[in-house]
Amino acid sequence: MIRISVLLLALFLFGGEGISALPRFAVKLKDRCIDCHYNPSGGIIRNEDGWNWGKNTLSMISTPDKDFIISPRISENISIGIDYRTQYLYSQEKKRTDFQNMSGSIYTNFGLSKEINVIAKYDFVNKIWEGYGIAHILPGKSYIKAGAFVPNFGLRIDDHTAYSRGGDFGLLFSQGVYRGLIYNPFYNEAGIEAGVFADKFLYASASIGANNISPSRPLSKDPTFTSRIELTPNIGSLGLIFGGSFASAKVPDKVNMYGGFTGFGYDEFSLLAEFDIAENLLGADIKTSVMMIEAGYGVLTGLDAIIRFDRIDPNVNFNKDEVSRLIFGFEFQPYSFIEIRPQYRLQIETPSVDNDAFILQFHFWY
């Protein structure tokens, strides 16, 4: 088993998805990503409603800014945001502690008109660019997006180390078998995406592009394809979500991924689950499965308890090669723009190894 201290060093030093949407918020509040973000699939800069909710409602102690004196707008049509994460970690295996720089991003939205926005992000820690234009020129907030972006696959939870996102992405394991899907912090695609909203309960998207993993391959020969459908019906106080995704990409070999997700939110409780199958991810003719289950409960305003189970089966035809982890933690937001995440990670494998870890993550945003 890989040494957990080295694993955590690479996974978190190389950045997190701290500016992604939190799906459990959407299912608890019976909202969609587009209700809080300029990006219809969530992440990067929040719109004014999302920013005001994060500043005035989410924190435990801060006094709400009823007069909206503070704003992310620097002009009538330009908004800015920042996001920075650092963390303290303890490795059970190495019996050592360390501090890590994770990610630091600045992002902006240019509103060219009521229907057209241009979004840009630069991660100055990891030197990663992302930028695209979104035109809501189709009925019902439906849109066309063009530029460099992360494709819309699965639940897109905000921890890239989940196996349903990038996992360990093969950086440290000698056989590279414990990485997750292809969506690590460095992955994006340059292309076009179309999304359709049907009333309040259906969102479907499809994209075609060329990924930055194999930049020498022209789009005309080896395009990537991603499609996703999401249904979010509400039954009284119960918010539901379920849907499925498909993707085909060369990274550098052709990988096909497909799966489903589901969940619900009721009052302060949320439960989300995702299961995916990937063909050729870890080698020719190898089928890999990944699973994620996350439960969250709002203990108090600004304090959520989180439990997540992640599992990867590198080859579904082999037994006892599965790797799992249980994550217990809290997300504490004492003041506006400040979040603290203590987390204990229990690693599960056969044979068992003493390689658990404690993480204390600090998140500052605006």
Rank of each mutant, 00 (worst) to 15 (best):
W365G: 00
P151R: 01
E339N: 07
S20Y: 03
R73S: 14
K127D: 13
F149S: 07
K320Y: 11
F14P: 00
L8Q: 08
K95A: 11
I293W: 07
S248W: 06
Y84S: 07
E130N: 08
F309L: 14
N184H: 15
R325W: 01
V290F: 02
G263A: 10
R228D: 15
L238Y: 01
D83H: 14
G195S: 09
V299C: 09
I44H: 01
V6C: 08
R179K: 14
F153M: 09
Y344E: 06
T350E: 13
D354Y: 05
K114T: 11
G296P: 03
K221E: 14
F173A: 03
G16L: 12
F332Q: 08
S75G: 14
R179M: 01
A198I: 15
M60F: 00
V251T: 14
V323R: 15
D276L: 02
D285G: 04
I213G: 04
D253W: 02
A135P: 05
M1R: 08
Y266D: 01
K121I: 07
L11C: 10
I182R: 01
P252F: 10
E130F: 02
W53R: 13
S352W: 08
V316L: 05
Q361H: 00
L271H: 02
V255I: 15
Q87I: 12
S324H: 00
G176E: 04
D310T: 12
Y187A: 05
G167D: 06
N211G: 03
S207W: 07
P64K: 01
V27D: 03
N319L: 12
P223C: 09
Y187C: 04
H37Q: 09
A305C: 01
F264H: 00
L11M: 12
F186R: 01
L155K: 00
R24E: 15
I119M: 09
G18M: 11
I119C: 02
I45C: 08
E349H: 03
S248K: 14
F110M: 14
N101Q: 10
V251S: 12
N77W: 13
I80C: 06
R156D: 12
F14L: 15
M60W: 04
N234V: 12
E331H: 10
D98S: 02
H136G: 07
L9C: 07
E48A: 10
V255E: 02
L240N: 09
I213H: 10
G154L: 05
L238V: 03
S41Q: 12
Q361G: 02
Q343D: 11
P215A: 03
L7E: 14
H160N: 13
F99D: 08
T63D: 05
Y143K: 09
I116T: 13
I134T: 04
T288F: 04
E115H: 08
S324K: 01
Y366T: 03
I182H: 03
R165V: 06
K320D: 14
G131W: 06
N152E: 13
R311W: 11
T63E: 11
G195R: 00
E294L: 08
S174R: 00
S289P: 07
A295D: 06
V118Q: 07
F124V: 13
H160R: 09
K55T: 13
K95D: 14
V316T: 10
Y297C: 07
S79I: 01
V150A: 11
I338W: 13
